[in-house]
């Protein structure tokens, strides 16, 4: 540590941010609302992101901000929208399967703590002419940039396609109109089809298994 040429301010900032990350991480499990839990987790991640910037990983740190921001918003919103709690403001118990969780937590802490104490970390000061963004890009993607970019685009298209397909509303009206679910076996009746259909009479005897 002494060999690095950073100031006292960086040390103080690191300690404060580390404390913030740990405290907000702990609050995730002690709060009583899903929205609060998600955003405590976000604060914890942001603190880690700032620590990464202090470690001269400027791209990774800043990327952490926006990735976690979007991720936690989506998570909070989906939980609120689907989990039957008026806007997540009614108090909820945020922990379950406590014994397993405690066990996993203790084990994880011991392993990581042992690594921090026992592993030999390289002592490499950041070279003066380092371009962190460029070197990170080369390190992670190298020659495969085109493949990764194409894969990213395909994923985005897939996501949009899935949303479009799963919506009940199609461009030409209700998507389910006139459609038939596939059968459970090849050539069998449409699955889960209500019996009082126009053709219900005809298929009636097939339904007795």
């Amino acid at each position: 540590m002494e060999s690095m040429n950073h100031g006292l301010g960086v040390d103080i900032a690191f300690l404060l941010l580390a404390a913030l990350a740990v405290v907000t991480g702990w609050r995730v499990f002690r709060t009583d609302s899903m929205v609060r839990a998600s955003f405590f987790l976000l604060v914890s991640f942001i603190a880690v992101g700032v620590i990464m910037i202090l470690l001269a990983a400027e791209y990774l740190g800043v990327a952490m901000f926006f990735m976690m921001a979007v991720e936690m918003t989506v998570m909070a919103l989906f939980m609120v929208m689907f989990m039957m709690n008026p806007a997540g403001l009614n108090p909820m118990n945020m922990v379950h399967q406590e014994r397993i969780a405690i066990g996993a937590g203790v084990a994880g802490f011991l392993v990581l703590g042992a690594m921090a104490l026992l592993a030999a970390f390289p002592d490499q000061p950041v070279p003066a002419g380092l371009e962190p963004v460029r070197s990170l890009g080369n390190e992670m993607l190298g020659d495969s940039m085109l493949i990764f970019e194409s894969a990213g685009l395909v994923l985005l298209t897939t996501m949009i396609g899935v949303v479009v397909l799963s919506s009940h509303r199609g461009r030409y009206g209700a998507a389910a109109e006139g459609s038939m679910p596939p059968g459970l076996e090849p050539g069998s009746d449409p699955a889960g089809k209500p019996e009082e259909d126009e053709e219900g009479e005809h298929h009636h005897h097939h339904h007795h298994h």
């Binding site: 009583d32 709690n85 009614n90 108090p91 909820m92 118990n93 945020m94 379950h96």
Partner: peptide, 9 residues
């Protein structure tokens, strides 16, 4: 958690 009963909610 003030959730007022059994279970999560």
């Amino acid at each position: 958690f003030g959730q007022g009963g059994e279970g999560m909610m």
